[in-house]
């Protein structure tokens, strides 16, 4: 019986291997074109990154990136089939071909890039772990937190980062550990700990749920690196390049001042960089397996990076997250795209 079971399992695994092998061989772009939609894995609910609005439409930074890819291929940002995926299913869904790409607050790490067979196509959002304290403590910097009690979610890298940070700065702290965000919120608001820590984008979101959001400040220090970006399968370079350059087009669009509003006029521009961007010069779309106006389609469909940012997480949204390190490289940030040439 045991032997039989073992044999069956081995067979199943081999079969699974064959299946994934086969899916890697097929050209994702062709499959997508034949299907007519991009299957895009998103988070089932992360404020500002992917969440359903009042009408049930998906909105958010990650969601808009899916739309940008669809716009590049089909000239229609609505041709996306959003697949909400939990943290545990996301990689299997990508590997099994259920989704063509993930755009789902996923941190780019070495192990994911190597052992898991994934390929990160860029960094849509540079996140990092932040610390929040009540304003009345009068703390201005994380360096003043020696001996503080810290509310942190259990079993996450958040806990590790916290330990690393305090140890490397020769400070002590008392962890107050919880399972869920709701519990963390309640404990922090009830004053059971002095500091609340999670990813910075999450801190801004959680703060809005407090009775008096203005009574809490997010400290300037970011104690870990969490680069979040779109992910594709390894083994299909054409698709990887397409997704990567969709991201670059968003950045280049912002750098060149091409917006959703003026993209039509930009076609007449004499600036050689803009001319290459809009496809008036060169044959750049063909190399991606797309049309000549691929970049125009993206900007027309969803706007440039700045527009996406402002719409979903920027200062005019309830989240009010400043651009910070997510600004363009020439404005003091980290967002940098190679030129279209």
């Amino acid at each position: 019986m045991k032997k039989l079971l073992g044999l069956g399992l081995a067979g199943a695994v081999a079969f699974a291997g064959l299946a994934t092998g086969a899916s890697a061989q097929q050209k994702t772009l062709d499959t997508v074109k034949a299907r007519g939609t991009v299957n895009c894995g998103v988070a089932p609910g992360t404020p500002g990154f992917s969440n359903p609005d009042d009408k049930g439409n998906w909105t958010g930074l990650d969601v808009d990136f899916c739309r940008a890819v669809a716009a590049a291929i089909f000239d229609d940002p609505t041709k996306v089939s959003f697949k909400p995926l939990t943290a545990k299913e996301r990689f299997t869904a990508l590997q099994s071909g259920e989704v063509d790409m993930l755009s789902r607050v996923t941190t780019w790490t070495l192990s994911r890039d190597s052992a898991m067979g994934l390929a990160f196509a860029g960094v849509m959002y540079y996140d990092g772990q932040g610390l929040m304290v009540p304003t009345k403590l009068g703390v201005k910097s994380a360096k003043e937190l020696n001996g503080a009690s810290v509310c942190v979610a259990t079993g996450t890298t958040t806990e590790l980062n916290l330990a690393d940070y305090f140890r490397s700065n020769n400070m002590t702290y008392k962890p107050v550990v919880f399972e869920k965000a709701e519990e963390l919120n309640a404990a922090y608001e009830a004053g059971r700990c002095d500091v609340y820590t999670t990813d910075a984008s999450g801190l801004y979101a959680q703060r809005l749920r407090f009775k008096d959001p203005s009574a809490h400040i997010v400290l300037p220090e970011i104690i870990s690196k969490e680069p979040l970006g779109p992910v594709v399968r390894q083994g299909d370079f054409q698709w990887f390049t397409l997704v990567k350059w969709t991201y670059f087009a968003l950045l280049n669009g912002e750098e060149l001042g091409i917006t959703q509003a003026n993209v039509a006029d930009m076609a007449k521009s004499t600036n050689p960089e803009v001319k290459r961007f809009v496809g008036a010069e060169g044959e750049f779309g063909k190399g991606l397996g797309l049309t000549q106006d691929w970049a125009v389609r993206i900007i027309k469909g969803v706007g440039n990076y700045a527009e996406i940012y402002e719409r979903n997480v920027g200062p005019n949204t309830p989240l009010k997250i400043a651009r910070g390190i997510n600004n363009l490289w020439n404005k003091g940030g980290l967002q940098y795209a190679p030129p279209i040439r």
Partner: peptide, 28 residues
């Protein structure tokens, strides 16, 4: 079923709670 990304009643309420537009102490 919400843990496999299907939105039943509870799942859709939770997804709705992640809408930044509705962030307030009492919404959840």
């Amino acid at each position: 079923v919400l843990i496999i990304g299907i939105f039943d009643l509870l799942g859709i309420v939770q997804a709705g709670l992640t809408d930044a537009k509705w962030f307030a102490p009492g919404t959840a």
